[in-house]
């Protein structure tokens, strides 16, 4: 159900419902409980869209009447990797669809001296190179930290075409920059915003996702 204005970008079907959900979470007057609930709904849609792209193999099962049913089963294992902290807000949505999924963490902060993103911490499943990876970060603005996180994954042996970068909103600029570095990584998103303002914030955006989800 995705439209692809860009190669390897899967934009969720812009139904009334989805646009309505974004109206709620973009509105600055939306209180935190509603922000969390409706963000979670969108996150779940992103995870489901990601899962739709994973490969399956035929599987015949026995039904309760003992007649066989020719179905399918997912092949390969997945794991989530969230970019701390805003990306962690998407873990629950992933667990809602894939119970006991392994989740790695990557912490990237702006280095005060160089003003560039710096990797502070990473903890990833041992066998991550064999897995499909859902990279979780709600906003793709300039793409700085996402590029650094993806670089970590690839250095650990993950194949780029097995990475799905899930975010709620991205900018055209962010997509271009990210795909210039990793053309084979698939981006799954629900909204592509006009651009960035002078502070490198998404326009119209929805504010600081992590703050709104965890604090405000």
């Amino acid at each position: 159900m995705s439209t692809e204005p860009y190669k390897n970008v899967h934009l969720l079907n812009q139904s009334n419902q989805l646009v309505g959900l974004y109206t709620i979470i973009r509105d600055k007057n939306t209180a935190r409980p509603d922000f969390i609930f409706y963000s979670d709904r969108i996150i779940r849609l992103l995870v489901e869209e990601g899962l739709n792209h994973l490969p399956v193999e035929p599987l015949t099962v026995r039904t309760h009447t003992d007649k066989p049913f020719d179905g399918v089963s997912f092949i390969g294992k997945i794991c989530g990797v969230s970019i701390v902290r805003a990306g962690e807000s998407m873990e629950e949505g992933l667990r809602d669809c894939c119970r006991s999924v392994r989740i790695g963490k990557i912490l990237i902060q702006r280095d005060e001296e160089t003003a560039k993103p710096k990797l502070f911490f990473e903890k990833l499943p041992e066998d991550i190179a064999q897995r499909y990876v859902f990279l979780l970060d709600p906003m793709l603005a300039t793409g700085g930290s996402a590029i650094m996180a993806t670089d970590v994954l690839i250095k650990r042996g993950v194949k780029p075409e097995r990475i799905y970068f899930l975010n709620l909103i991205c900018s055209k600029e962010g997509i271009d920059k990210y795909h210039a570095a990793f053309p084979d990584v698939k981006i799954v998103t629900g909204a592509i915003d006009q651009g960035l303002d002078e502070n490198r914030y998404l326009i119209p955006g929805l504010g600081d996702f992590g703050d709104r989800y965890y604090c405000l």
Partner: peptide, 16 residues
Amino acid sequence: TIETPEGTTIPDALKC
């Protein structure tokens, strides 16, 4: 019409 936390106004936002 809604306003985002960054102060951008979105006219004609769909409301469900």
